[in-house]
Design a protein around this nucleic acid. Structure first.
Lengths: 144, 144
DNA sequence: CAGGATTAAATCGTGCACAAAGGAATATAT
DNA sequence: ATATATTCCTTTGTGCACGATTTAATCCTG
Protein backbone atom coordinates (compact mmCIF):
# COMPACT_ATOMS: atom_id res chain seq x y z
CA UNK A 1 0.00 0.00 0.00
CA UNK A 2 1.38 3.41 -0.98
CA UNK A 3 1.97 6.08 1.62
CA UNK A 4 -0.81 8.59 2.16
CA UNK A 5 0.25 12.21 1.50
CA UNK A 6 0.10 13.03 5.21
CA UNK A 7 2.74 10.38 5.91
CA UNK A 8 5.23 11.81 3.42
CA UNK A 9 7.99 14.18 4.46
CA UNK A 10 7.77 16.02 1.15
CA UNK A 11 4.09 16.67 1.73
CA UNK A 12 4.74 18.23 5.13
CA UNK A 13 6.97 20.78 3.40
CA UNK A 14 4.49 21.26 0.56
CA UNK A 15 1.61 21.73 2.96
CA UNK A 16 3.54 24.00 5.35
CA UNK A 17 4.69 26.19 2.45
CA UNK A 18 1.11 26.73 1.34
CA UNK A 19 -0.08 27.36 4.90
CA UNK A 20 2.75 29.87 5.34
CA UNK A 21 1.80 31.74 2.19
CA UNK A 22 -1.78 31.91 3.42
CA UNK A 23 -0.53 33.30 6.74
CA UNK A 24 1.46 35.96 4.88
CA UNK A 25 -1.35 36.87 2.50
CA UNK A 26 -3.28 39.37 4.66
CA UNK A 27 -0.04 41.04 5.78
CA UNK A 28 1.31 41.33 2.25
CA UNK A 29 -1.98 42.55 0.85
CA UNK A 30 -1.48 45.74 2.84
CA UNK A 31 1.81 46.22 0.99
CA UNK A 32 0.33 45.25 -2.35
CA UNK A 33 2.86 42.52 -3.06
CA UNK A 34 2.79 38.73 -3.39
CA UNK A 35 4.90 36.34 -1.35
CA UNK A 36 7.62 35.74 -3.99
CA UNK A 37 7.73 39.49 -4.58
CA UNK A 38 8.24 39.99 -0.83
CA UNK A 39 11.19 37.58 -0.90
CA UNK A 40 12.78 39.50 -3.76
CA UNK A 41 12.23 42.79 -1.97
CA UNK A 42 13.73 41.31 1.21
CA UNK A 43 16.85 40.40 -0.73
CA UNK A 44 17.10 44.00 -1.95
CA UNK A 45 16.35 45.49 1.48
CA UNK A 46 19.10 43.44 3.08
CA UNK A 47 21.57 44.36 0.34
CA UNK A 48 23.85 47.37 0.22
CA UNK A 49 22.86 48.39 -3.29
CA UNK A 50 21.42 47.14 -6.57
CA UNK A 51 21.52 43.43 -7.36
CA UNK A 52 21.61 41.65 -10.70
CA UNK A 53 18.82 39.30 -11.78
CA UNK A 54 21.20 36.40 -11.28
CA UNK A 55 22.23 37.66 -7.85
CA UNK A 56 18.60 37.80 -6.76
CA UNK A 57 18.08 34.36 -8.23
CA UNK A 58 20.84 32.92 -6.06
CA UNK A 59 19.29 34.33 -2.92
CA UNK A 60 15.73 33.20 -3.61
CA UNK A 61 16.62 30.10 -5.64
CA UNK A 62 14.66 31.08 -8.73
CA UNK A 63 15.91 31.33 -12.25
CA UNK A 64 15.70 34.28 -14.53
CA UNK A 65 12.71 32.99 -16.48
CA UNK A 66 10.67 33.23 -13.29
CA UNK A 67 12.25 36.46 -12.09
CA UNK A 68 12.00 38.51 -15.28
CA UNK A 69 8.20 38.75 -15.32
CA UNK A 70 8.09 39.13 -11.51
CA UNK A 71 10.57 42.02 -11.66
CA UNK A 72 8.58 43.63 -14.46
CA UNK A 73 5.54 43.60 -12.19
CA UNK A 74 7.57 45.16 -9.37
CA UNK A 75 8.79 47.75 -11.87
CA UNK A 76 5.22 48.45 -13.02
CA UNK A 77 4.34 48.97 -9.32
CA UNK A 78 7.23 51.45 -9.17
CA UNK A 79 9.00 49.54 -6.38
CA UNK A 80 12.15 48.74 -8.39
CA UNK A 81 13.99 50.05 -11.43
CA UNK A 82 15.80 47.89 -13.96
CA UNK A 83 18.73 49.04 -16.03
CA UNK A 84 21.54 47.44 -18.00
CA UNK A 85 24.93 47.54 -16.34
CA UNK A 86 27.03 49.83 -18.58
CA UNK A 87 30.16 47.81 -17.70
CA UNK A 88 28.57 44.54 -18.85
CA UNK A 89 25.39 45.00 -20.79
CA UNK A 90 24.42 41.38 -20.40
CA UNK A 91 23.56 42.12 -16.78
CA UNK A 92 20.44 43.87 -15.56
CA UNK A 93 20.82 45.79 -12.33
CA UNK A 94 17.73 45.89 -10.12
CA UNK A 95 17.53 48.85 -7.74
CA UNK A 96 14.90 49.88 -5.20
CA UNK A 97 12.97 53.06 -5.94
CA UNK A 98 12.09 55.45 -3.13
CA UNK A 99 8.73 53.72 -2.83
CA UNK A 100 10.46 50.37 -2.70
CA UNK A 101 12.85 51.48 0.03
CA UNK A 102 10.05 53.07 1.99
CA UNK A 103 8.12 49.82 1.98
CA UNK A 104 10.76 48.22 4.23
CA UNK A 105 9.46 50.15 7.24
CA UNK A 106 5.89 49.09 6.52
CA UNK A 107 7.05 45.47 6.37
CA UNK A 108 9.11 45.59 9.55
CA UNK A 109 6.42 44.10 11.77
CA UNK A 110 5.79 41.06 9.56
CA UNK A 111 8.38 38.61 10.97
CA UNK A 112 7.00 39.18 14.47
CA UNK A 113 3.43 38.55 13.28
CA UNK A 114 4.41 35.31 11.58
CA UNK A 115 6.39 34.09 14.58
CA UNK A 116 3.30 34.63 16.68
CA UNK A 117 1.08 32.71 14.26
CA UNK A 118 3.34 29.67 14.45
CA UNK A 119 2.94 29.58 18.23
CA UNK A 120 6.60 28.55 18.59
CA UNK A 121 9.46 30.21 20.42
CA UNK A 122 12.19 31.76 18.34
CA UNK A 123 14.84 29.18 19.27
CA UNK A 124 12.70 26.28 18.06
CA UNK A 125 11.94 28.12 14.84
CA UNK A 126 15.60 28.86 14.20
CA UNK A 127 16.54 25.23 14.80
CA UNK A 128 13.81 24.04 12.43
CA UNK A 129 14.87 26.65 9.86
CA UNK A 130 18.44 25.35 9.94
CA UNK A 131 17.36 21.71 9.73
CA UNK A 132 14.98 22.30 6.83
CA UNK A 133 17.49 24.47 4.96
CA UNK A 134 20.09 21.73 5.39
CA UNK A 135 17.74 19.24 3.72
CA UNK A 136 17.16 21.67 0.86
CA UNK A 137 20.89 22.20 0.37
CA UNK A 138 21.57 18.48 0.52
CA UNK A 139 18.88 17.77 -2.10
CA UNK A 140 20.28 20.41 -4.43
CA UNK A 141 23.83 19.13 -3.94
CA UNK A 142 22.78 15.55 -4.65
CA UNK A 143 20.87 16.47 -7.75
CA UNK A 144 23.59 18.66 -9.24
CA UNK B 1 17.78 46.14 8.24
CA UNK B 2 15.32 43.55 6.92
CA UNK B 3 16.04 39.85 7.19
CA UNK B 4 17.66 38.21 4.18
CA UNK B 5 15.58 35.38 2.69
CA UNK B 6 18.05 32.77 3.94
CA UNK B 7 17.41 33.90 7.53
CA UNK B 8 13.64 33.45 7.29
CA UNK B 9 11.91 30.29 8.45
CA UNK B 10 9.31 30.64 5.71
CA UNK B 11 12.04 30.70 3.08
CA UNK B 12 13.56 27.45 4.33
CA UNK B 13 10.20 25.77 3.69
CA UNK B 14 9.79 27.52 0.35
CA UNK B 15 13.28 26.58 -0.75
CA UNK B 16 13.07 23.00 0.52
CA UNK B 17 9.73 22.48 -1.24
CA UNK B 18 11.23 23.53 -4.56
CA UNK B 19 14.35 21.44 -4.02
CA UNK B 20 12.14 18.47 -3.17
CA UNK B 21 10.13 18.87 -6.35
CA UNK B 22 13.36 18.97 -8.35
CA UNK B 23 14.47 15.79 -6.62
CA UNK B 24 11.18 14.11 -7.54
CA UNK B 25 11.20 15.36 -11.13
CA UNK B 26 13.38 12.69 -12.77
CA UNK B 27 11.58 9.92 -10.86
CA UNK B 28 8.13 11.20 -11.79
CA UNK B 29 9.08 11.80 -15.40
CA UNK B 30 9.34 8.03 -15.80
CA UNK B 31 5.72 7.79 -14.65
CA UNK B 32 4.63 10.74 -16.79
CA UNK B 33 3.10 12.68 -13.91
CA UNK B 34 3.86 15.93 -12.10
CA UNK B 35 4.43 16.25 -8.37
CA UNK B 36 0.93 17.46 -7.43
CA UNK B 37 -0.50 14.71 -9.64
CA UNK B 38 1.65 12.19 -7.73
CA UNK B 39 0.21 13.45 -4.44
CA UNK B 40 -3.34 13.00 -5.76
CA UNK B 41 -2.53 9.52 -7.02
CA UNK B 42 -0.97 8.67 -3.64
CA UNK B 43 -4.21 9.65 -1.96
CA UNK B 44 -6.10 7.32 -4.29
CA UNK B 45 -3.57 4.48 -3.93
CA UNK B 46 -3.84 4.60 -0.15
CA UNK B 47 -7.62 4.69 -0.26
CA UNK B 48 -10.00 1.73 -0.35
CA UNK B 49 -12.00 3.03 -3.27
CA UNK B 50 -13.00 6.15 -5.19
CA UNK B 51 -12.71 9.55 -3.55
CA UNK B 52 -14.65 12.73 -4.17
CA UNK B 53 -12.94 15.89 -5.37
CA UNK B 54 -13.49 17.40 -1.94
CA UNK B 55 -12.11 14.30 -0.23
CA UNK B 56 -8.94 14.51 -2.28
CA UNK B 57 -8.78 18.21 -1.52
CA UNK B 58 -8.79 17.55 2.21
CA UNK B 59 -5.88 15.15 1.91
CA UNK B 60 -3.71 17.33 -0.30
CA UNK B 61 -5.00 20.69 0.96
CA UNK B 62 -6.11 21.99 -2.44
CA UNK B 63 -9.49 23.26 -3.49
CA UNK B 64 -11.58 22.31 -6.48
CA UNK B 65 -10.39 25.19 -8.65
CA UNK B 66 -6.91 23.66 -8.57
CA UNK B 67 -7.99 20.03 -8.60
CA UNK B 68 -10.53 20.09 -11.40
CA UNK B 69 -8.05 20.86 -14.19
CA UNK B 70 -5.44 18.57 -12.60
CA UNK B 71 -7.94 15.70 -12.48
CA UNK B 72 -8.94 16.36 -16.07
CA UNK B 73 -5.30 15.95 -17.07
CA UNK B 74 -5.10 12.69 -15.13
CA UNK B 75 -8.29 11.60 -16.88
CA UNK B 76 -6.85 12.54 -20.27
CA UNK B 77 -3.81 10.39 -19.37
CA UNK B 78 -6.28 7.57 -18.59
CA UNK B 79 -5.07 7.20 -15.01
CA UNK B 80 -8.39 8.12 -13.37
CA UNK B 81 -12.08 8.20 -14.26
CA UNK B 82 -14.50 10.86 -13.08
CA UNK B 83 -18.22 10.27 -12.65
CA UNK B 84 -21.08 11.91 -10.81
CA UNK B 85 -22.23 10.09 -7.70
CA UNK B 86 -25.76 8.85 -8.55
CA UNK B 87 -26.79 9.29 -4.88
CA UNK B 88 -25.69 12.94 -4.82
CA UNK B 89 -25.02 14.39 -8.21
CA UNK B 90 -23.22 17.39 -6.75
CA UNK B 91 -20.29 15.12 -6.00
CA UNK B 92 -17.78 13.78 -8.51
CA UNK B 93 -16.26 10.42 -7.69
CA UNK B 94 -12.67 9.95 -8.83
CA UNK B 95 -11.60 6.35 -9.37
CA UNK B 96 -8.33 4.83 -10.52
CA UNK B 97 -8.33 3.12 -13.91
CA UNK B 98 -6.37 -0.08 -14.43
CA UNK B 99 -3.46 2.00 -15.68
CA UNK B 100 -3.72 4.20 -12.64
CA UNK B 101 -3.71 1.28 -10.24
CA UNK B 102 -0.84 -0.37 -12.09
CA UNK B 103 1.25 2.75 -11.71
CA UNK B 104 1.42 2.20 -7.93
CA UNK B 105 3.91 -0.62 -8.41
CA UNK B 106 6.09 1.50 -10.67
CA UNK B 107 6.09 4.23 -8.01
CA UNK B 108 6.89 1.93 -5.10
CA UNK B 109 10.62 2.63 -5.11
CA UNK B 110 10.26 6.42 -5.00
CA UNK B 111 10.09 7.00 -1.20
CA UNK B 112 13.31 5.02 -0.78
CA UNK B 113 15.05 7.07 -3.52
CA UNK B 114 14.01 10.33 -1.92
CA UNK B 115 15.05 9.23 1.56
CA UNK B 116 18.46 8.46 0.14
CA UNK B 117 18.75 11.85 -1.55
CA UNK B 118 18.10 13.63 1.74
CA UNK B 119 21.01 11.78 3.34
CA UNK B 120 19.06 11.49 6.59
CA UNK B 121 17.99 8.45 8.56
CA UNK B 122 14.31 7.62 8.61
CA UNK B 123 13.82 8.54 12.28
CA UNK B 124 15.15 12.05 11.77
CA UNK B 125 12.97 12.50 8.70
CA UNK B 126 9.86 11.32 10.53
CA UNK B 127 10.56 13.67 13.42
CA UNK B 128 11.05 16.60 11.03
CA UNK B 129 7.90 15.61 9.15
CA UNK B 130 5.87 15.71 12.35
CA UNK B 131 7.36 19.03 13.45
CA UNK B 132 6.80 20.70 10.09
CA UNK B 133 3.28 19.33 9.78
CA UNK B 134 2.50 20.66 13.25
CA UNK B 135 3.56 24.15 12.16
CA UNK B 136 1.35 23.86 9.07
CA UNK B 137 -1.64 22.76 11.14
CA UNK B 138 -1.06 25.52 13.67
CA UNK B 139 -0.89 28.16 10.92
CA UNK B 140 -4.10 26.93 9.37
CA UNK B 141 -5.85 26.83 12.74
CA UNK B 142 -4.71 30.37 13.60
CA UNK B 143 -5.79 31.77 10.26
CA UNK B 144 -9.23 30.18 10.28
C1' DC C 1 -44.39 21.27 -1.08
C1' DA C 2 -42.49 25.87 -2.28
C1' DG C 3 -38.55 29.01 -1.85
C1' DG C 4 -34.40 30.33 0.08
C1' DA C 5 -30.04 28.75 2.01
C1' DT C 6 -26.26 25.60 1.67
C1' DT C 7 -23.06 22.62 -0.54
C1' DA C 8 -20.09 20.58 -4.43
C1' DA C 9 -17.70 21.38 -8.57
C1' DA C 10 -16.48 24.01 -12.34
C1' DT C 11 -14.94 28.39 -14.53
C1' DC C 12 -12.18 32.59 -15.02
C1' DG C 13 -8.30 35.71 -14.32
C1' DT C 14 -3.74 36.63 -12.18
C1' DG C 15 0.66 35.21 -10.73
C1' DC C 16 4.34 31.92 -9.81
C1' DA C 17 7.69 28.05 -11.49
C1' DC C 18 10.38 25.71 -14.75
C1' DA C 19 12.09 23.58 -19.25
C1' DA C 20 13.50 24.70 -23.71
C1' DA C 21 14.84 27.87 -27.08
C1' DG C 22 16.73 32.25 -28.47
C1' DG C 23 19.45 36.49 -28.78
C1' DA C 24 22.84 39.81 -27.40
C1' DA C 25 27.17 40.82 -25.16
C1' DT C 26 31.49 39.20 -23.42
C1' DA C 27 35.33 35.99 -22.93
C1' DT C 28 38.65 32.60 -25.07
C1' DA C 29 41.26 30.34 -28.16
C1' DT C 30 43.25 29.85 -32.03
C1' DA D 1 41.50 39.31 -35.79
C1' DT D 2 38.18 35.90 -36.44
C1' DA D 3 35.75 32.03 -34.92
C1' DT D 4 33.96 29.58 -30.96
C1' DA D 5 32.16 29.20 -26.50
C1' DT D 6 30.08 31.03 -22.44
C1' DT D 7 27.24 34.09 -19.75
C1' DC D 8 23.09 36.68 -18.78
C1' DC D 9 18.66 37.69 -19.61
C1' DT D 10 14.26 37.21 -22.21
C1' DT D 11 10.55 34.61 -24.50
C1' DT D 12 7.34 30.83 -24.95
C1' DG D 13 4.49 27.06 -23.44
C1' DT D 14 2.68 23.98 -19.72
C1' DG D 15 1.06 23.25 -15.18
C1' DC D 16 0.03 24.48 -10.49
C1' DA D 17 -2.44 27.66 -6.84
C1' DC D 18 -5.88 30.67 -5.28
C1' DG D 19 -9.63 34.32 -5.02
C1' DA D 20 -14.01 35.34 -6.96
C1' DT D 21 -17.90 33.99 -9.48
C1' DT D 22 -21.16 30.68 -11.48
C1' DT D 23 -23.99 26.54 -11.96
C1' DA D 24 -26.41 22.74 -10.36
C1' DA D 25 -28.14 19.68 -6.86
C1' DT D 26 -29.62 19.05 -2.14
C1' DC D 27 -31.26 20.53 2.29
C1' DC D 28 -34.16 23.06 5.36
C1' DT D 29 -38.00 25.76 7.18
C1' DG D 30 -42.31 26.93 7.36
Amino acid sequence: MALAPSDMFCFSLYSATHAMQQAYRPLLEELGVTYPQYLVLSALWSSDGPLTVGGIGQQVQLDSSTLTPLLKRLEAAELVERSRDPKDERQVRVALTENGSALEAKAAHIPECILEKTGLDIETLQRLRAEVLAVADKLRATGA
